[in-house]
């Protein structure tokens, strides 16, 4: 891997109240890389990403972003520093119009440019342009998911953390979303971690590397090809 490491979580122990879900988990993300984090329900995927983003504070372990120690830093600071966190289900501001939703990041961080970013987001999601004066609450599930990703892109993030982005989508939208992830890596130069419980073949089709988690521990790290050849995936899900 020639690219620089942009994110690194080392030996993370974290959880909720006294129950430690993660037991010494590490993960790395390089520039312009797509990483799929897969594993069964209860493996600790969401807990890991919430800890990386700062929603949960780790009991031990370190997190580095762009070489800087960000362990325990508040989520809004991580967000302003270049992390984009996609909440499961594709959260949007349902009472605001599509255009108002897209402009919220600019109102939060006035240093961000507006016009060019809007054009770029509309070129990635042309369907949003025709909906821009519609209230986001009336969008279909797929449109809402696109808007949720569009809002994050208006922040001009350097990395994206996507929580189960395709699990609840209709098949046609799942394929579209996977295409968008590819485009974000290739044309936008973004680094992306997305985690999936289902739709494993789709996740593997777009990932450069894969991590497999089970019961709060990392069971596998390698390329999709290496995963397909071994038995780690079956072991994680069925044993």
């Amino acid at each position: 891997m020639n690219n620089q490491k942009i994110l690194e979580a080392k030996e993370i122990v974290a959880g909720y109240n006294k129950k430690m879900v993660l037991q010494g988990v590490s993960i790395e993300l390089y520039e312009k890389e797509v990483v799929a984090l897969i594993g069964p329900n209860g493996a600790g995927k969401s807990t890991l990403i919430k800890t990386v983003f700062g929603i949960l504070k780790p009991k031990s372990g370190k997190i580095f972003f762009k070489g800087e120690d960000i362990t325990g830093r508040e989520p809004y600071k991580n967000s302003l520093n270049g992390m984009g966190y996609f909440i499961q289900g594709g959260e949007v501001f349902t009472n605001l119009t599509v255009m108002e939703n897209l402009l919220i990041p600019q109102y939060i961080d006035k240093k961000l440019e507006r016009e060019n970013l809007l054009d770029e987001v509309f070129s990635l999601f042309p369907e949003l342009k025709s909906l821009n004066d519609k209230r986001a609450g009336i969008l279909s599930g797929g449109e809402r998911q696109m808007l949720a990703l569009g809002i994050l892109l208006m922040k001009k993030p350097e990395i994206l953390l996507l929580d189960e982005p395709i699990s609840k989508l209709a098949p046609i939208w799942k394929n579209k979303f996977i295409e968008k992830i590819k485009e974000l890596k290739e044309k936008w130069g973004l680094s992306i971690i997305f985690w999936a419980e289902q739709d494993i073949p789709k996740a593997l089709s777009v990932a450069d590397r894969v991590y497999v988690m089970k019961l709060g521990k990392m069971e596998f790290c390698g390329t999709p090809e290496e995963l397909r050849q071994g038995k780690k995936l079956e072991e994680a899900y069925f044993k």
């Binding site: 967000s79 909440i87 959260e91 939060i108």
Partner: peptide
């Protein structure tokens, strides 16, 4: 409307 998303987007 959505405090969780507002936090995630960096709102103070």
């Amino acid at each position: 409307n959505n405090p969780e998303l507002a936090t995630v987007l960096g709102m103070n």
